[in-house]
Amino acid sequence: MTRYNDRPDDPDRRRLLGGALAVAATAIAPGILLVAPRAAGARMPTEPVTDAVRWGLLIDTTKCEAGCDHCVAACQTEHGWTDEPLSRPDQDAQWIRKVEVRDPRTGYAFSLPMMCQHCEYPPCADVCPTGASFKRADGIVLVDKHICIGCRYCMVACPYKARSFVHEDIEGQKAYSPRGKGTVESCTLCVHRVDAGRVPACVEACAARAGDAMLFGDLNDPESAIAKRISQIATTRIRADLGLHQGVLYHGF
């Protein structure tokens, strides 16, 4: 009997679309290093990242309080995005935001932080004409602002409204987090911290000042705290029906 693969994230579909193109892309983008997978373990900072690691985040909404926004504040401090002098509120950057959700039929309500979900199959990277939107080998979705032309197609394609466009000249950026007018930006999963062996700023702040609702780690490593936890509790991804296989998982709804 034929058994149809009913997983929405069926990788065959991806292979169909991407396979033939990948050959061309490898030759076209010499800046992107394609490296053979190596055993999991600490990486030297001078070595390129590999797909042996898959960074992920588990957010426990049962510990996330409505109205608490320590994660948002920590992100703003870390990366320096906040009210820009000229931008209207709807033009200001939103790398991470708190969303309150309520089921109108049952009354059940919960609160959660929403940011770049670091999809395994990121629509932003699919639609980006120059390849500025891309997924690093270890699963972190980033914008290479050097080749971003500011077309904003990634923002149209993102299901989570996780990306922001910089509407005006920026000054006083952090050395590790460049941002500039005319390019698109989003949560980097604090890639500068991760590369230095630390956890993202939001996770740190949530543990120190709020409900410790965020757990960061390597989803590929069965011994990691996050891998163990998600093997024991029910988790979900936002709009899991889209089959994007995000790196950010939620528990509690």
Partner: peptide
């Protein structure tokens, strides 16, 4: 260096703009 760092996560090598600054 910029491509190595942004795409490959390679840091701490000698041509970083941060160090120029």
């Amino acid at each position: 260096q910029r491509d190595d760092t942004v795409h490959g996560g390679i840091r701490g090598t000698k041509y970083a703009l941060k160090d120029c600054v």
